[in-house]
Design a protein around this nucleic acid. Structure first.
Lengths: 177, 177
DNA sequence: TCTAATTTGTACGTATGTATC
DNA sequence: CGATACATACGTACAAATTAG
């Protein structure tokens, strides 16, 4: 695993464990450089990832704080992650049709176009989810939706994704939490 | 405006104008460096922003392609952006209450914690929205929700945010498109 | 009110790794 | 195997915003 993803996961672990609760001011970038013996570029890359997912927030001259909301409550909305390769006319039309149906049923469809065959980024966080009807290729495919799901998850650590749709196949999963 | 945001807006403009339609392979990072006379770090930073918002996607060894979906269709779901400062116990409790109510009414609440007083990043994209009941401080505050709204917007250029809630005040706005 | 220190933000150059073609 | 293209990583410097004094 890359250095910045390693640091990201370490910080995320501290946050999920409650070592850094919401509102806590994180160590400065320079302090993190010293603590983990990494360059500032790498440290900032890790922090960028966490910012992207809404776990932390930062401001010039002030510092970086944890903005991870605990004690959320489960959502009643269905969250559906849909992943498609970038070039795929069939899937594009299927998707449009599917989105319409889903909306009519009060579900939210999060779409993410992606290339095929990326690696799994954050095993630890993903491990919080228990896959039902788990199939081998699913883990790879599920990873691609990880970011979007995590974003929603961080809007209060609450979104129960109740179904997972991929290439016409529906696989359910539920949070372990 | 910073160099990377300038490049980001230029590329975004080309995409929105249809110069780069979905599926188009963008010039390589090196070519962009030459074209705009910027370092690769800066070019990558601009591309990162666009990736974060789901406008483009990239893969090692392949290239960077536009994944901006046009011809979406409007959603029937209300999208509500809610912005709060990082330290604010009152708002935190208000938010939880509000989220519950919103969900019961079939709306999606996107929450973003943030510091106060950031600058407006992408006027051009935001200009696509016409604010109703516009008030001066709203522009600043609305900016903070821009990213989340844009993400949704890029899930098919479609999400009509029909209400905008901020600090207990409701301000409606609709897309010009 | 002004200054200096602190902290994050922006930007360049460079090198190496890794996946794809 | 070589060429290409994105990914990761280090060092450095300065800018900008905030805070402390």
């Amino acid at each position: 695993m890359s250095l910045y993803l390693g640091l990201k996961d370490q910080l995320l672990k501290l946050i999920l464990e409650g070592k850094y609760v919401s509102g806590t001011v994180l160590p400065t970038e320079h302090e993190l450089c010293d603590q983990y013996e990494l360059s500032r570029v790498t440290v900032r890359k890790a922090l960028d990832e966490l910012k992207k997912e809404g776990v932390i927030a930062s401001a010039q001259g002030q510092g970086t704080v944890v903005s991870h909301r605990k004690n959320g409550f489960p959502s009643s909305l269905d969250l559906i992650a849909l992943v498609a390769p970038v070039h795929n006319p069939f899937f594009a039309s299927f998707m449009e049709h599917f989105e319409r149906i889903a909306e009519e049923n009060g579900s939210l469809v999060l779409f993410k176009q992606d290339f095929k065959g990326k690696t799994f980024q954050s095993d630890e966080l993903w491990a919080n989810y228990e896959m039902i009807a788990y199939q081998q290729p699913m883990k790879e495919m599920a990873e691609k939706a990880y970011q979007r799901l995590a974003v929603q998850n961080n809007q209060g650590e609450l979104w129960q994704a109740s179904s997972f749709v991929l290439q016409g196949e529906v696989v359910s999963f539920k949070p372990k939490i």
